[in-house]
Computed example of a mutant assay.
Amino acid sequence: MSNLVGRRLQEMAALRASRKHKMVQICSIVALTMLFLYGGLHLIQNNLVFALIDISSGIILSLNLFLLNKKQHSNHATLVLCGILLLQGGMLLFYGGHGAGSLIWIYPIIAAVIFASEFRTGLVLSILFCVIATVTVLFIDPSVVGDLTVSRFLVSLLALCLLCNTSSYYYDQAVNYIQSLYREGIEDLAYMDQLTGLANRWSFESWASEKLEEERDSKTITAMIFLDIDNFKSINDTYGHEVGDKVLQYLSSRLKNNVRNKDRKTEKHDYSIARFAGDEFVLLLYGVNNKQDLENILNRILHLFEDCYQGPEKIGKLAVSLGVALYPEDATNLAELTRCADKAMYSAKHNGKNQFHYYHRKESTIEKKTTLTNVDNVTPLKHRTP
């Protein structure tokens, strides 16, 4: 069902471009027909100036339509079409009583300009034409309206512009809303883990790399936390993967609701909590004032899951092991920092689980340089068992 909705949203998100392309095509074909038709009539009646203008406009519009079908880009094509249509509308307005045209053609011309353009473009062009028409019939030459009264012509023209622009506005709003839904869906697929709703590994690493650079010279503490559910394999083996998925969702929800995951400065949610792989999660804590505040957060995470998991399977209490690596003391880049936190997490597991360990870096007397310790040699500078 979600795949079907996604496909429909994708189709509707592309609706604006396809509609505009088709509108420009249809209006161009109709305008071409009328231009060459009236160009021929003007030739027969020896109105050479009007014939030249109509035929020249038809040739330009033909080239415009050819380029539109070849390149599939309608922005320039729309402007050319609107320019020719407004030129014809102006000729009808000023010379309608002296040629083969009729003032009634102004109405479909204005409607075509509005619907073939983006809302704002159509609004500006239609208002500009209405102003010119009003000035013309009120102050320059009221006789151009022919059998129509001035008031009837102006009211009908303004009413047409109002209706067409209103329709174009609500259509534009609807398409914008559909496109925003589509963009949000694409963002969720690209950046979020579909099972837990947390950030996925890719989005976390992209965000965290930039965040570490921001925090490099900060006076506060920045820490990478690697979290793993204790005995999760036995939960999957005993109750099945469906229950295992529910446990992951439960843990994710508790983390999101109890650990800060938005920037204090911007108040926008970030990607600081992520599902790394399987039952492994990572958190990047930044802006922590001191070590005691950090340990308070770590203890709070350990105690988040003391209550029994609420489900018909009666799994009981969940326990987690945490590995902590400090930036830039333990590592100066994200990959190494993640490795350090991972090693510290395994140390916490090997030393009894349900606790946190800091990563410990020690000096190698053989190589005479600082090296990362193996998992078995990670020293628990601090651990806590609830």
Rank of each mutant, 00 (worst) to 15 (best):
R16A: 09
I132K: 02
I26V: 11
M192I: 15
I229Y: 01
R216Y: 14
Y309D: 03
I315W: 02
Y169D: 03
G240F: 04
F204C: 02
V145W: 10
V24D: 04
I221T: 11
I229F: 00
L198Q: 02
L65H: 08
N176I: 05
V135L: 14
G311S: 12
V288M: 08
N176A: 15
D342V: 12
F226V: 01
C308E: 14
I60N: 08
F153K: 03
H241A: 02
D172F: 06
K246M: 02
H303Y: 07
L65M: 09
L148S: 07
A341T: 06
L87Y: 02
N47R: 15
E213A: 14
T121P: 00
L138G: 09
I235S: 00
G83P: 06
V247Q: 00
K20T: 15
I59S: 03
N374M: 12
L125N: 05
K211C: 10
L67Y: 11
K256M: 11
L43E: 04
E205M: 15
S218F: 06
G311D: 11
Y107P: 02
R260L: 09
D193T: 00
K262R: 11
I140V: 12
D228R: 00
H76C: 10
Y327L: 04
R300Q: 15
F276D: 00
K71R: 09
E267A: 13
N176R: 13
M91Y: 13
L148Y: 12
A199L: 02
L154H: 08
H350E: 12
C340P: 05
S126Y: 05
L35T: 03
F276H: 05
V155M: 15
S206F: 05
G97Q: 13
V5I: 14
S252D: 05
F153E: 06
R183I: 13
M91S: 02
V324A: 08
K317N: 01
G311R: 01
A331T: 02
C340D: 12
Y271E: 13
I84V: 07
L158Y: 14
T371L: 13
H383V: 12
H303A: 12
L123Q: 07
N236M: 01
L318P: 01
L123V: 13
E214Q: 13
L283P: 01
L4G: 02
G122Q: 11
R339L: 07
R7D: 13
K219W: 09
E329M: 06
D245Q: 00
L154K: 00
A199D: 05
H98P: 03
G99Y: 07
C340R: 12
A341M: 07
S117L: 08
L4F: 09
N257H: 09
V288G: 03
K71P: 02
N69R: 12
Q72N: 10
D307W: 05
L212D: 04
K369C: 11
N46S: 11
E242F: 05
S143D: 10
A331G: 01
G6N: 14
C82I: 10
H98C: 00
R7A: 08
K268I: 10
I186K: 15
E210P: 00
V49S: 10
S143L: 10
S168M: 14
E267K: 07
D293S: 10
S203D: 14
L93W: 03
Y177I: 09
I59Y: 10
L41P: 01
N333V: 04
L285S: 07
E213F: 04
D307G: 11
Q355H: 09
K265H: 07
V49E: 13
R16W: 07
S18T: 09
E313D: 02
L125F: 03
P328S: 07
P386D: 13
S252A: 11
G244P: 03
